[in-house]
Amino acid sequence: MKRLLLILAVVGIIQIASTLYYDTKMLDEPIPVAGMIDFANKTIKFSYVTNSLDPHEFQSIEFNGHHYYPEQPFSMFNAQPQTTLETYVKYTYYSMISPVIWLYDNEDLTPLEGVTKGTIHFKNGITTTIPLTTYEYEEIPQLQSLSSSVGTDGTSGFYKVLEPFTLKQVTVVDNRVDLLNFKINGKDVQLPLTAPLQFNTEDKLYIETTDGEAQYEMELFKLELHIMDAEQKDKILTLTQFLNTKPSEDWVNNLVKERGEL
């Protein structure tokens, strides 16, 4: 029995030490990461880092006094904004929660015009401001998307040319992603382009990229085609794809190290 008491004392000390160490890792306040108002797909997407045990619970996000709640009841006759509230990644000490708010009504988009940041309200009364980028649908009369694929091994898009144009350059507007392949009518083209390329109707264009870590659910990255259209005007055609890889534990831990004292 004496030996057991000694073992129990040692186990107890280890347990309490382990608990105290875990407690030092806990975040008092959640860390907002990034977000986007996607006018094209009528969604608001964002993310924040919180504790894996006892996470801060999302209550609403506010823009100019207008709140978007996850509990809004679904009605078949009067579509309400819906929120998916899922744990995006969960690691030893920290998790990333990435709510996605689906807006059905154009009226729900009105309070979002000109917005660059939102205020996240948590159930324990904490509020935090999150910067948001915006994405608006841009019509691209020169191209028609034939197929696309997205995955953690990379993304690809296959397009048909509808109107002739001259391509001057192709760039990815995201340092997390690299261009892998660029093909015109099945033939590889070296990038960056050394000379402009002429595209005619019915030409086929294939673009393949690597994937990158998405900081929130369904984050988009942009590919820019710098062109001169049929009217000899310089234009940028913006193509988008989803980032599919989830942030690593190291990335989350570094973010907490940098901004944990917020």
Partner: peptide, 20 residues
């Protein structure tokens, strides 16, 4: 049984530092 309970007690609090 007592050894298993001790291990369980220990792991419940040590394991929180492992991969989820």
């Amino acid at each position: 049984y007592i050894s298993l309970l001790l291990l369980f007690q220990l792991f419940t609090y040590i394991g929180i530092h492992f991969a989820v």
